[in-house]
Amino acid sequence: MFTSSSRSAGSNDFSALYRRTGVETQVLAATPHHLVALLFDGLLESVARARGAIEQRDLITKGEAIGRAVRIVEEGLKAALDMQAGGKLAGDLRDLYDYLTLRLTQANLRNDPAPLDECRALVLPLQQAWAEIRPAA
């Protein structure tokens, strides 16, 4: 079951696997509302990780974190919008998500934490509002 290379893997490998498994379990058991909440959490976590990486001048981690944040916005939040049923609100959110993607890209290209701070400031109220409208279980 375990090869010699997997037995010698560092504790970081196992903790990453544990975290990933925990996230996968949450996703499989989540309601659609909870899935969006997880996307907001993941986006803010990625933005914070990218900001820290810029401060540490860790370009690889910065690129990975910003890439993850962009994927969450584009493939998660934006893709989940129902443009027909959502009307103007969905259109406004789509425009906001486009702007977030632009600012994340600028932060990446310029190694500038200011766009990341702006993204965080724009997403936090959405995350909080989404938590407040949680459906009753």
Rank of each mutant, 00 (worst) to 15 (best):
Asp98Val: 05
Trp130Gln: 05
Leu38Gly: 03
Thr101Cys: 09
Arg120Val: 12
Gln56Ser: 10
Ser4Thr: 08
Glu118Asp: 09
Val23Asn: 09
Tyr97Trp: 10
Asn108Glu: 12
Leu43Pro: 08
Ile66Phe: 11
Arg7Pro: 00
Glu118Arg: 02
Leu17His: 04
Ala114Trp: 00
Gly10Met: 06
Ser15Val: 08
Phe40Pro: 00
Arg94Ser: 12
Val36Ile: 12
Leu89Arg: 10
Thr3Tyr: 07
Ser4Leu: 13
Ala121Ile: 00
Leu100Gln: 11
Glu132Asp: 05
Asn12Gly: 09
Ile66Ser: 13
Ala65Lys: 03
Ala9His: 08
Thr61Tyr: 00
Asp41Glu: 13
Ala137Glu: 15
Phe40Ala: 03
Gly22Arg: 11
Ala136Val: 13
Gln26Leu: 15
Gly52Met: 06
Thr61Asn: 02
Ala50Arg: 02
Pro115Met: 10
Val23Asp: 10
Leu28Lys: 05
Ala53Asp: 09
Val123His: 01
Ser5Arg: 11
Phe14His: 12
Thr61Gly: 01
Ser46Thr: 11
Leu28Ile: 04
Ala85Val: 06
Leu122His: 06
Leu104Met: 09
Gln128Val: 06
Gly91Lys: 11
Leu109Cys: 07
Ala137Tyr: 11
Arg71Cys: 07
Leu93His: 03
Glu45Asn: 12
Ala29Glu: 12
Gly52Phe: 00
Pro32Trp: 08
Ser15Ala: 09
Ala80Arg: 13
Ala121Phe: 03
Ala79Ile: 05
Ala30Trp: 01
Ile133Trp: 14
Gly67Phe: 01
Thr61Phe: 00
Gly63Phe: 03
Lys78Gln: 12
Ala131Glu: 15
Ala79Cys: 04
Lys78Ser: 07
Ile133Val: 15
Arg103Tyr: 03
Arg110Gln: 14
Arg134Phe: 08
Leu100Phe: 08
Gly63Asn: 15
Leu44Asn: 13
Ala9Val: 10
Arg103Asn: 06
Pro32Thr: 12
Ala9Met: 10
Ser8Glu: 10
Ala48Cys: 05
Glu24Leu: 13
Leu102Gly: 01
Thr105Lys: 13
Leu28Ser: 10
Leu116Phe: 07
Arg20Cys: 01
Arg19Tyr: 01
Asn12Val: 07
Ala48Tyr: 08
Ile72Glu: 06
Phe2His: 14
Thr101Trp: 02
Tyr97Gln: 06
Ser6Phe: 07
Asp92Glu: 14
Ala37Gln: 15
Gly91Phe: 14
Phe40Val: 11
Leu89Met: 13
Pro115Tyr: 15
Ala37Cys: 05
Cys119Phe: 06
Leu122Glu: 06
Glu64Cys: 00
Glu74Tyr: 01
Asp95Ile: 05
Cys119Ala: 10
Arg103Lys: 12
Cys119Glu: 08
Ala114Val: 07
Val23Lys: 10
Leu122Ser: 05
Asp58Met: 06
Asp13Tyr: 12
Arg134Ile: 07
Ala136Gln: 15
